[in-house]
């Protein structure tokens, strides 16, 4: 296996970060993704290998480095306060099978 510039052991080395099936269920819930009961273990294994791989970042010395959120050093541009968009509801709702009487619908939410 080629090393691609990474320290030996990182790519196929021991799994440094291990996600449990409970971890997977928790984040799958946060992300509102259904994962079949039979898939949880294999998903946990793959995520563990991904997280172990990215975990090598922990070794990087980033002490006083300013985080970089964006590749461009620009400021947000401001838009004039003008109404430029007009009603196209019927067109927009053609992509929804759950539109009724102009609304979008979902199963009843109890508050």
């Amino acid at each position: 296996m080629r090393a691609h510039g990474f320290p030996p052991g990182v790519i196929n080395g021991p799994v440094a970060v291990k996600l449990t099936p409970q971890d997977v269920e928790h984040i799958a819930h946060l992300a509102r993704l259904e994962i079949g009961a039979g898939e949880i273990d294999s998903v946990a294994a793959k995520l563990s290998s991904i997280m172990s791989f990215v975990d090598q970042l922990q070794a990087a010395d980033t002490g006083s480095v300013e985080p970089m959120a964006h590749p461009l050093d620009m400021a947000q541009r401001l838009r004039a306060d003008e109404v430029t968009e007009h009603d196209q509801r019927d067109l927009f709702q053609r992509n929804s099978s759950a539109a009724a009487d102009g609304f979008y619908t979902v199963p009843r939410v109890i508050e």
Binding site: V54, L57, A60, T62, V65, E66, P67, M68, A69, P71
Partner: peptide, 15 residues
């Protein structure tokens, strides 16, 4: 902090 923020800092190093 351990992942996202760390990655943003590493991104700065790369840039």
């Amino acid at each position: 902090d351990a992942y996202y923020l760390k990655a943003q800092k590493a991104r700065q190093l790369i840039a």
